[in-house]
Design a protein around this nucleic acid. Sequence first.
DNA 1: CAAAAGATATGATATTTATCAGGTTTTATG
DNA 2: CATAAAACCTGATAAATATCATATCTTTTG
Lengths: 229, 229
Amino acid sequence: MESRCENCIIRQFNSLRAMSKEELKRVSDSKTTKVIKKGEPIFQEGEKLDGVFCVRDGVSKLSKLSANGKDQIVKLASKGEVIGQRSVVAEESVNLSAVAVSDMEVCFIPKEGIVSTLHTNPNFTLEVLRHMAHDLKEADDVIVNMSQKNVKQRMAEAFLYLKNNFGEDEEGFLKLILSREDISNVVGTAIESCIRIISEFKKKGYLKTSGKKIGITDEKALTNLVEGF
Amino acid sequence: MESRCENCIIRQFNSLRAMSKEELKRVSDSKTTKVIKKGEPIFQEGEKLDGVFCVRDGVSKLSKLSANGKDQIVKLASKGEVIGQRSVVAEESVNLSAVAVSDMEVCFIPKEGIVSTLHTNPNFTLEVLRHMAHDLKEADDVIVNMSQKNVKQRMAEAFLYLKNNFGEDEEGFLKLILSREDISNVVGTAIESCIRIISEFKKKGYLKTSGKKIGITDEKALTNLVEGF
DNA sequence: CAAAAGATATGATATTTATCAGGTTTTATG
DNA sequence: CATAAAACCTGATAAATATCATATCTTTTG
């Protein structure tokens, strides 16, 4: 099952779209496609990366482990996103671990093709820069949320985020299914607090659940909560 | 008092060093120098910027205001740093406010010179990209600290950060003098908690104070605290 | 320099959140 | 499909942190 970057629609969503035909051809010739099962790592904090990963399908959590054994999820990357870019650009080891939270298909692109294009094609470099500028803004927003919103507000925000970024199924449940532990690692709270707040939101009619699946039943209420009403 | 970018040593610390002679000349011809007094704003959240600011002297806090009226300081920018870059690169309004925390001298560089160089000189674009990659890593670290360290640990870390980045005077006090309110806005805590912890650190012999000045007297103890011992 | 404003400090208390301990339900596996 | 393991849930309690009230010290300003 051969597939070429030139024909890949995913590319439209990331910086690879700014590559020339020739550059893209070179990338396509050097890339390899990998299937990663839910729970498996793509890379670990501290590793040196020899390239970047373009997500074709599925979702990966990017997280950092702390001394006390807790993981903080900094970002969820899905279809179209390129991960490991920061590390390759800065020529540093990765500062985050990437683990699949659903079954994934990713393309590994060796860094040589990326780096040489960065040096010669300003459109591509600028496109990567724009994506990084966007990530930086999002990171700033997370910092502010962490310090100025309480756990209940951050939980509400997390569910709205999951709905807006990954969508709902036909029955109104969030498409991206995360364990309670992963949710608490996104929000930055203890698992028990996370579970307790889900129960509370259910009682109040903001959420519904079915096993691990969670659905939003009162979006307005969650929005109000985030805004501080 | 004329001064040219070509002769400015500050430039060595930021992405302007990757500009060609001609590009730099153009920037220098269009730039204006401004003096900003302590407490005065450089720009405010939501504004559209017509250029970037290169810090020649002094320190600026980059912060974001929340609904409840609290300010979270996301970054302290000093000599050599370029602020407003993210906004100009992404062609978005600024997501943070910049206010001088000490008297400052900055150069305002209209965006035209920057943007056209971004499109034509990949070395410059790559240099800007590398700086942004560094900022993004730092932001990720702040997120993790916020969620995984307690207020006392974050306070300890803040003092070590201030020492490492802005230095000490001859008497061993931190050179950068911040109000207790600014410190609490860096750490993400209530002013009273911030003041209380400073008192506690003084009692334990970790810090000394003299008016607004704060000095570190037991660096090892602060480091241990951060590490969780 | 006196009055006012602002910043710093501390105690008492309330609120939020984490932790511990013990359940139940769900999922994985031989 | 039985059993173990993992994930989920809830209550009780402890710890961390914010808030309110008030006092003192410092700086600014008329």
